[in-house]
Amino acid sequence: MSESLDEWKIFRELGDDLKQNIRLAVVFRGSAIYVTKDDEVFGFGKNEEGFLGTGDMKPHTEHTKIEQLCGQNIQGLNFSNHSFFALSASGSVFAWGRNNHGQLGLGTKENTLIPTKIEGVLATNRVVQVACSSNHTLVLTSDREVFTFGWNKNGQLGLGHNEDQTLPIKLDFPSAGGVVTAIACLFFSSVALLDSGEVFAWGKNDYGILGQNADLKEQPVPCRVPGLEGITITRIVCGQIHALAVSSNGKVYSWGWNAHGQLGNGTKENSHRPTLIAGDFGRIKDVAAHITLHLSAAVTEADEVFVWGFNGTTNLSPTKVSFTSLDELFAKTSNEALTFRPLRLE
């Protein structure tokens, strides 16, 4: 357990007893939040944008207890540049950070630096996943319903209009598409994966991120991403304005913005259609990206890690690296070390 945490510079000076008591952790811009086995939650570090949920934006060299999250059995921690979320085992969502568009789902547009439980319609729904950009948020419930809130200038909430929402609103999907199994946010857009293996997207179509023709500027309701017909997608992840999708046969498809080579297609040309990433790297079992970075990565069934996009230098095609996991890659990225997903320590 402590070996996994030691991949991250911010955790290396912690005592072994403490490291062995941590079950969940995230790292962002020189700060860390961790949950202990006895269900207490602490934060320490630079505290940019009030990430630590301590009610201020001051650096915390001492480990500070986040009282609102203690005793909640926190199972998930998600963040963008400015907004932060914690998900409890019971399906409650706590939000804090910037809220100028209502992206915290608290019914106001006032910022808060203290984790606050989202009430309203989510009080009677068990949330199982949170996805957030800097300005809008999606949540997925155990009933496979999607609720959206926040900035909606480009239809990224999928509600058929362009009005911001400060409270969670249920999003309707085409009935023939199946049920939603995963969600992801981009800066101006949103993506969902259905149990049928189909991918839906909506919002602004900058750089072809919706997988639609370039003449389409916006899509205010969920629309099937073309170009994946006959392909069963099992996982989706998104960067700032690019998407990656893994198929059931271990192939990776990418589309959207490509100024840093984050599509892995050997060029810096954007793609308006999902395109197979070619390479002699065998079957892919997982991919990674994060909305704050222009970096993409994948790990094969042989546990080989490949990276493309910007990571101090630019790789236009998947390049094998010496790291043994995606978490280690993101811990030691020369661009900005962060957790692209919570560290779950068994």
Rank of each mutant, 00 (worst) to 15 (best):
L293T: 11
F149W: 07
S175A: 13
D327L: 09
A184G: 10
L69R: 09
I169C: 14
D206E: 13
F330G: 03
L216C: 11
N213A: 15
G211T: 06
H136C: 04
T292Q: 10
K37S: 07
K37P: 00
L122M: 00
D6W: 02
W257G: 03
A86M: 04
K332S: 09
L244H: 10
N111E: 15
S90F: 04
T267K: 08
Q103I: 05
V128E: 04
L326F: 06
N335G: 00
Q219G: 02
A89E: 15
T339M: 03
Q212Y: 07
Q156A: 10
V41T: 13
K204C: 08
I284N: 04
G105R: 07
V179D: 12
K117A: 08
S2H: 10
T148I: 06
D206F: 08
S142K: 14
S248K: 10
L338G: 06
V307D: 01
E67G: 09
H260R: 13
S134A: 15
S296F: 11
V252L: 01
P274D: 03
R126D: 11
H161L: 06
T137F: 02
G76V: 01
N73F: 03
L326D: 05
N47L: 03
S92D: 15
G309N: 08
K204H: 05
T141G: 08
D327W: 06
N73C: 03
A184Y: 02
W151E: 08
Q219M: 14
D195E: 14
S334L: 12
